[in-house]
Computed example of a mutant assay.
Amino acid sequence: MVDYHNKTFFGDNSAFIVQSGSRIDPATFFKLFKKKEDETWERPSEGEGITIKFAMKEVAMILEVLQGKLKSWSTKHSFKKRATIIVVEWSSDTTFMINTANYSITLKSGQIQIFQMLLQHILEEKVIYATSGEHSENQANVGKELPAPQNRTNKVKKYPQTQPKTKKKPKRNKSENDRKNMNAIIEGETEKALLLNFEGKEPTWIPKSTIHSEFQTEKGIEQNFLIEVWVLKKNNIV
């Protein structure tokens, strides 16, 4: 089972990407983009097109339409005082559409089935992992073999030897040499981490506590981040 999903669906002149940065993140993102007048495609990685963030209940409603339980469904999102109305609907028995004011994507036959299966899978993952806490220690030990009881016969009680106390070395403050400036694009976000897309690397979750520069939370734009070197090395970024 993978933790990251990224699938593009193309229509004739428009397309969208379904993206889930992590199964523990309840949000699912749709990135809509289209052909320009010069016949080239908009590039979401450069901030072109629009990105829509759906909650789990909204993904469930889209599935209601895909499964034929509803003819259509719509919702309204507001971001930076700009409202976007999204409508998903069956335009015919074999054609499914996603519409906003500036984008209209049509899916047919096989694409519809893959889209439905992908959303169902993502939602099931998030229901399990994005809504549950850590297992308790007792739950984690269920089914594990317990150590055999020790033989206490003629056991002599031993007292630990006194060790000389040593002074602890003072903790070294992290210097600028422990950090590195890196360009990356935000692909996802949770309360404690950012999903960053470094050029030539797979998107990687970076703890916010290891980022020492200000950044915009807007996704799809390249920014500079001052990141602790150890986490970059741990994830093979440098």
Rank of each mutant, 00 (worst) to 15 (best):
V2Y: 08
D3I: 07
D3G: 10
N6W: 07
T8Y: 08
G11F: 03
D12A: 03
S14H: 03
S14D: 08
F16R: 10
I17K: 07
Q19E: 04
S20G: 08
R23E: 06
D25L: 08
A27T: 07
F29L: 07
F30K: 01
F30W: 04
K31R: 07
L32T: 01
F33V: 01
D38H: 08
E39G: 00
E42G: 05
R43I: 15
E46N: 08
E46R: 11
G47L: 05
E48D: 03
I50H: 00
A55Q: 05
A55G: 01
V59H: 12
L63N: 13
E64N: 12
G68H: 05
K69G: 03
L70S: 14
S72N: 13
W73K: 10
T75V: 11
H77Q: 00
K80N: 11
R82Y: 09
A83S: 07
I86D: 01
V88N: 08
E89W: 05
I105M: 13
T106H: 08
L107D: 08
K108S: 10
G110L: 14
Q111V: 04
I112E: 06
M117I: 14
L118A: 11
L119M: 15
Q120S: 15
E124C: 04
K126W: 04
V127F: 07
T131H: 15
S132F: 05
S132N: 14
K144Q: 12
K144N: 12
E145M: 14
P147E: 09
N151P: 07
R152K: 11
R152H: 06
K158T: 09
K158C: 04
Y159Q: 15
Q161A: 11
Q161R: 13
Q161T: 13
P164G: 06
K165N: 06
D178V: 00
K180L: 12
I186S: 01
I186A: 02
E189D: 01
T190E: 06
K192S: 09
K192V: 07
L196R: 04
E199V: 10
G200W: 13
P203D: 11
W205P: 11
P207Y: 05
E214M: 01
F215I: 15
T217L: 06
E218G: 05
I221N: 09
V229A: 12
L232N: 02
L232V: 00
I237R: 09
